[in-house]
C-alpha cells in the first residue's frame, strides 16, 4: 500500500542534522544531509550575465577576466573542507580552491593554453557541511 507523508521540515532525533536513509540495495544506509548538494548553479555569460538556475548562491560577481566570485546564502561550516565540481562550456576548464571561504568562493576558468578566459556557460555543484 502506498503512503504519503506531508511535511515541511525533516530533523534528526539523535542529531538534528543527521538522518539515515536506506540505500537502493536495502542493505546499507546513507546519510540524508551528507548526500544533499548544498549549492548548485548554472551561470550564463553569453549575453547579459544571469543565473539560469541557482540554489543557495547569490549572483556571481565578475572579478576579472576568467574569474567570478559567488557568495553562499547559507554559509558552509568551514572554509576549506567543502567540495566543488564544475564545468564550463567551450574549450576550457574550471579551477578553484585557494580562495574559498565559508561564505564565498572564487571560480577561475582557463583555456587550454593556460590563460584565464571567460566562457559562455558554467555549471557547478557544492557538497559539504552547512554551518
Amino acid at each position: 500500500m502506498s503512503s504519503i507523508l506531508k511535511v515541511n521540515t525533516l530533523t534528526g532525533v539523535s542529531t538534528a542534522g543527521s538522518i539515515s536513509v536506506t540505500g537502493e540495495g536495502n542493505s546499507t544506509t546513507t546519510n540524508l544531509q551528507n548526500g544533499l548538494a548544498k549549492a548548485h548553479m548554472t551561470y550564463d555569460l553569453s549575453g547579459t550575465a544571469e543565473i539560469v538556475h541557482g540554489f543557495n548562491l547569490s549572483s556571481p560577481v565578475d572579478v576579472a577576466q576568467g574569474k567570478f566570485g559567488c557568495s553562499f546564502i547559507n554559509n558552509m561550516a568551514t572554509a576549506t573542507e567543502y567540495a566543488v565540481a564544475g564545468i564550463c562550456k567551450g574549450n576550457g576548464f574550471m579551477v578553484h580552491g585557494a580562495l574559498q571561504t565559508a561564505s564565498a568562493m572564487q571560480i577561475w576558468n582557463y583555456d587550454w593554453d593556460g590563460d584565464l578566459s571567460d566562457f559562455d556557460l558554467y555549471g557547478l555543484v557544492v557538497h559539504g557541511d552547512l554551518a
Binding site: V7, L10, T11, V13, I19
Partner: peptide, 11 residues
C-alpha cells in the same frame, strides 16, 4: 510541520 526522526525507509 516538522518531522523529527533518525531514519527514512521506503514502505
Amino acid at each position: 510541520s516538522e518531522l523529527v526522526l533518525d531514519e527514512l525507509t521506503g514502505r
